[in-house]
Design a protein around this nucleic acid. Structure first.
Lengths: 301, 301
DNA sequence: TAAGGTTACGGCGATCGTAACGATC
DNA sequence: GATCGTTACGATCGCCGTAACCTTA
């Protein structure tokens, strides 16, 4: 048994059990991969993969049982490399941030700028995806940390830290009836609604607010992206329900935003990362920076 | 990086950082070990071991940080092998049971005999040691499971399962004054006492019973081993305080045992094993067998 | 000076790449 | 028949062992 065989199992897992794809990823020829797998299975004394003819179609029962150990080994191996690199120069490296559009545009700019000043040697990759995908990115180690509002708390393999709490707001053109007077769910429900897609940026809390009221929102447009919502609000398609911090007093002067805090439960944005994954010092500092920015935002309100 | 280098780090850890001893354990020559370590350190880019001249004297700060990952990898690697072996033939293997003398002699015989009938292909190794050493044996993987009363609950890397609860008893020769009448701590304290060593078989509970009473037991002989205690009780050296189940009605007819359950808090014997360690099916069945035997004992009382 | 560690070098074995073959959609 | 996997074979690279050398209790 050796580490490249263990690595191979991981890569096969992520590439539909295809030996040729795995070979490509490992920068060696198929035949080498084929042989390594045979050697590994021979050493264990039993096949790890279910086969249909010559093709691999899935894990055997044995394979399923060892994949957890395989993942553990790969993670620990990467941790060793990260720890060493971090030890040699904790100012150099890469940081993969997985997050949703709203966070990336309305919350992250300030902490990222500050982080960048402290760590000019760290290359930052922003990965935008749905909350569900974000968690997958963490597990597949395509992302180091995830910043988002939904889903993340359910996963026991993740460390989840609170970041900040926010409220939804309704945005309408300046002359819209909702720009004045008390806002109620009833009033809201009487207009066509534009808001986030299911599973995005606190959408679940909008559902919770409506539940047991007998009312339904007429959501005529769902988007993952606040800017798309604002665009169609500007075109007069309806009223937007967006995250409060996504209203920009300067850029959105043609729109009116009104707080929905009593009507819709507050949402909590969190920072998440893999429990057994070593984070370089700079990543830990980035998390600190996020929490500082969150505190500043709270104070500003 | 490869698995034998990771293995080497573990072996160095367990052999005073001696390259020559490590070479011996790995069945290769020193020079090979020396080179592998150099290659590993070169790959990481920084030394893992502190050196005094040429000799290794300890871990560097980097080394300390990676040893946890090293342990994780070694454990997971062994798990893969164990899982495979178990998958191929779950009736074959070895079982290292670490326990104290009292458990080995007075509790384990029945469950071990039964286990042996079901799994004639499993070789059993009994390792007798002090509770503190038992835990070390688990960590160093010299033992698969430990059965003992003391210490074990404090370690977060261990899974601890309850086994059975028992009481101390006082044993005296037939004609001894303590063989009749109500037994109190005061009466006990008036005789020279023979009992278990500190850290053994519920000794801590004897201490707890005495605490805050102002009394002290005159323990003239401590032993890890119930049989040693009985032997000196027979010679008239004093009264023995032993585990209740260590009195054998047949073999110990010349002695009188009297329950101390109200005077000394009950002791709990537990089964412990490493949290991240895969246990073969037969070991899981052995644990079941232990708990069955424990239940039977409770019923018999 | 004995024991432990490093360096140099030769040989062997492991693993890769090429290539031909076999199987499967 | 194009794609995927296996088998065979030659070449290379990595790793071990021997041995000489260096260093420290």
């Amino acid at each position: 048994m050796n580490l490249s065989q263990i690595e191979l199992l991981r890569i096969l897992q992520e590439n539909d059990f295809s030996l040729s794809k795995a070979a490509e990823k490992m920068h060696i020829v198929q035949s080498a991969v084929s042989r390594q797998l045979q050697l590994f299975e021979a050493e264990l004394g039993s096949p790890v993969y279910e086969r249909q003819g010559k093709r691999l179609i899935g894990l055997t029962s044995l394979g399923e049982r060892i994949m957890e150990q395989v993942a553990t080994i790969n993670l620990a191996k990467n941790n060793i490399q990260t720890i060493a690199a971090d030890y040699i120069d904790s100012n150099q490296g890469v940081l993969h941030i997985a997050t949703t559009h709203t966070q990336a545009k309305y919350f992250l700019p300030k902490p990222i700028l500050r982080f960048r000043e402290k760590y000019p040697g760290v290359r930052i990759y922003m990965i935008e995806a749905s909350p569900e995908q974000l968690i997958n990115k963490l597990h597949s180690r395509n992302a180091d940390i995830a910043i988002c509002t939904e889903k993340v708390s359910e996963d026991i393999d993740l460390v989840v830290k609170p970041c900040y709490e926010w409220h939804h707001a309704v945005v309408v053109p300046k002359d819209h009836p909702l720009s004045v007077g008390k806002i109620t769910l009833e009033r809201l429900a009487s207009y066509p609604i534009l808001t986030y897609s299911f599973g995005f940026t606190g959408r679940s809390n909008i559902e919770i607010a409506l539940k047991n009221t007998g009312m339904e929102l007429d959501v005529i447009l769902s988007a993952a992206d606040t800017d798309v919502i604002k665009t169609y609000v500007r075109l007069g398609m309806g009223v937007g329900i967006i995250a409060g911090m996504a209203y920009d007093p300067l850029m959105d002067q043609d729109l009116i935003a009104r707080d929905l805090s009593p009507l819709i439960p507050s949402s909590k944005t969190k920072i998440a990362y893999l429990k057994n994954n070593y984070l370089p010092l700079y990543t830990q500092h980035f998390i600190d920076e996020l929490q500082v920015a969150a505190t500043e935002m709270r104070v500003a309100q």
